[in-house]
Design a protein around this nucleic acid. Structure first.
Lengths: 219, 219
DNA sequence: TGAATTGTTGACCAAATGGTCAGGATCAGG
DNA sequence: CCTGATCCTGACCATTTGGTCAACAATTCA
């Protein structure tokens, strides 16, 4: 009984088809509620700042009940990282070699900005993780991420070679999109403190980044 | 005895002249060693992930001895934030209304990038803090930071009004410099994973960002 | 309906951790 | 070299926290 589905926790590692959410109605609901509560906690307090008690309270469950569905705090954390990793990388995957280069790159930027706007908790979850040396993501990052970025960087390099966009380092171009878009989610309190309460950071960011990348990529 | 210099911990809050490092030789040395060790720990493990025991070990002191020099873990953390806040804001303070606009802005960007290169631990210390809602920096940020940025943004707005640089939102321009430069320190593991082991992130970043801001600010 | 499976929890435990304290070591100045 | 102030530490304490377990409740299904 204990740890029965420990296996499924590591099922949908990357592009794998998510295991068919097995389990009873009640099981599905509680697992979902726990993950939702845990995401909220982990994203604002980090792994070490989060207690199972708080997750349980936020999820309106008892602590032992939380541990009935997940074998450990770390398992919940890992599950969250794995579940959202695809969501996190999809915008880049969608960058296609066919299609207008500037449209593709600016589209990627906009998708990433939308992610920051609509999923700030997920962004902070990863930010916390990477900030502390990515203890859990190391394997995934060293493998999949590097290759994915290399693949897309090659596409951009082609565009440059064909004289379709300005010559910039493709890797740093991608990194700059991460930095500029995720910053608005990860450091939202700072951004809001600087902009004041009446301004809309994301709406303004979109215009600003549009301008920025238009300028940078223009020939 | 206990907590004798608790007062000095909040002495150099912002632009104040640092209190004349009072204390015996041995006192100065141990305080410095403790802060150095604590910075190393806090920056990579965050506040909650850091234990006084580890700080003590890293500093080659006993735990009670650490608590002899600082009243609590939080006091060490606060002291670090306060001590480095000026260092953190100085690059922006140096942005001057007199002087060539593009030089000033690009100079600011380069100073920030140098900070990320030379003081990555300090960068991560603040990143951890801001990521989690800046529980300690709130007062300082809401006050000093907002005003400082507003002041510099006004300078940039003037330059734009005078047609000396391209029209971009000054606040977001400053935020973009934070995002792009700090990203290389805060998410260094990710950047290195993506770029591979043989490349030099900061050297490349400098050229990339030079290009980026040259392009964006050009008329 | 009743047995088997699944879901839930109060009570508990061991380890980690922030912090205290009394007393001993060390050092500076007279 | 004596004394008071400074410096240091082993032992200890209370709380927090991740995790366990036996037993009880609910649900499913034959």
């Amino acid at each position: 009984m204990r740890g029965t589905w420990k296996g499924t926790a590591t099922a949908s590692v990357l592009g794998m088809t998510a295991a068919p959410r097995q389990g009873s109605r009640i099981q599905q609901k509680n697992r979902r509620v726990i993950l939702q509560a845990a995401l909220s906690e982990f994203s604002t307090r980090g792994f070490n700042g989060t207690t199972i008690d708080r997750i349980a309270e936020t999820a309106s469950l008892s602590k032992p009940n939380v541990l009935y569905y997940f074998p450990s705090k770390e398992a919940i954390h890992l599950q969250l990282l794995e579940t959202h990793l695809d969501l996190w990388l999809d915008p880049l995957r969608a960058l296609s070699a066919t299609g207008e280069p500037r449209e593709q790159i600016m589209g990627y930027m906009r998708r990433k900005l939308d992610m920051s706007r609509n999923y700030p908790q997920e962004s902070r979850l990863f930010a916390n993780e990477v900030l502390q040396g990515a203890p859990h993501l190391e394997r995934i990052m060293a493998g999949g991420l590097h290759d994915l970025v290399a693949e897309k960087a090659a596409i951009i390099a082609d565009w440059i070679a064909q004289g379709r966009i300005a010559a910039v380092d493709p890797h740093h171009l991608i990194i700059s999109i991460w930095a500029l878009t995720q910053h608005y989610a990860d450091f939202e309190v700072q951004v809001r403190a600087v902009l004041g309460q009446t301004r809309d950071p994301f709406a303004e960011a979109e215009r600003f980044l549009d301008h920025l990348y238009s300028r940078m990529l223009a020939l």
